Simulated assay, not measured.
Amino acid sequence: MKRIRGQRSLLMVGLGVIVAAVAASALAAQAKPATTATKSSATNQSASETAAKNASSLHRKKFNVSKTVYANDPKVKTCVRITLYGTLEYEKSKRSTLKGSTWTVYSGRKVVNPTMTVSSFSGPKCQGARKSVKLNRADLSQRWYTSNCTFNPGISVGFPWAVAVAPTVNCNQVTVAQNVTQHLNKAASYRQSNSNKEIKFDGAEYNNACLTVDASVKVYKKNAADSADTTFKVCPS
């Protein structure tokens, strides 16, 4: 009897150990999904943050720039005020590196309604008091290209604009968008309007996303003509 009772005691102890092991396994199994869910939540949050950083947004920036230049021919000797205005549109986004640093990416750059005006006047060194000077005629020219001198950035335009490889002030010969208009009437001011016209630049830029425009006017006065030129840079914010 004593041997049977001893065997029963050993059996009960063994069963207790097994039950305890099963309970511990059940608790561990319940804890694992919670850990996995936490990891999954953290991964999703990280992916959301990355997507938010990489999301691009549309920006519109109006520009209005002016310079006074001089047509120096002895028979012309006329001061010319050249002004350009319009809107620069672009997509702006942030990109992250594996080391955690970020940089800004500009894409979809577009110049909308690029308008050029010219006014002619006389004055000492083109400063101080001004007196309007009427010209016989004026030819106005705009020539847009990327400021980093990309030879073929991919430019698209609509009539009467044209895309060509041409000499520029800052980049020698590169692909440009250009428009030249002739104004045959006598006047002291002229305007090259480009309503509903766009100049589109393909691709993305990480650092130098500025655009450059060479503006030129050939003025005709009496029986002489001369050119007055300048250049402007238009940059996203």
Rank of each mutant, 00 (worst) to 15 (best):
G100Y: 02
Q173T: 13
S195A: 13
N113K: 09
M116Y: 00
C126W: 03
A162F: 04
S189Y: 09
Q182H: 15
K92M: 15
P167C: 05
I155T: 05
F159A: 15
Y145M: 07
P153T: 01
N152L: 02
V180F: 02
C171V: 03
V133L: 11
Q127M: 10
D139V: 11
G123D: 06
S189Q: 14
L135S: 08
A166V: 02
L135D: 08
S132K: 15
S193W: 05
K131C: 03
V180R: 14
T115Y: 03
P153M: 07
S107N: 11
A129Y: 09
Q127H: 09
C126V: 05
I155W: 02
Q142R: 08
G128Y: 04
G100N: 10
N170I: 00
S107E: 13
T115K: 11
A166M: 05
F121T: 04
F151A: 15
C149P: 07
K94G: 02
A187E: 14
F159G: 12
W161F: 12
V165S: 08
K110T: 12
M116A: 13
S141E: 15
G158D: 12
V157M: 12
R130D: 01
P160Q: 12
G108I: 01
P114W: 06
K125M: 05
A164R: 12
C149V: 00
T175N: 14
G154T: 04
S101F: 04
R130V: 10
N136W: 00
H183L: 13
S132G: 06
S120H: 04
I155Q: 09
N136K: 07
Q127Y: 04
Q182I: 06
G158Y: 05
S141M: 10
S156W: 03
S189N: 15
K94P: 02
N179L: 15
M116T: 13
K92T: 14
V111Y: 06
S101G: 10
V105Q: 14
Q142F: 02
S101C: 04
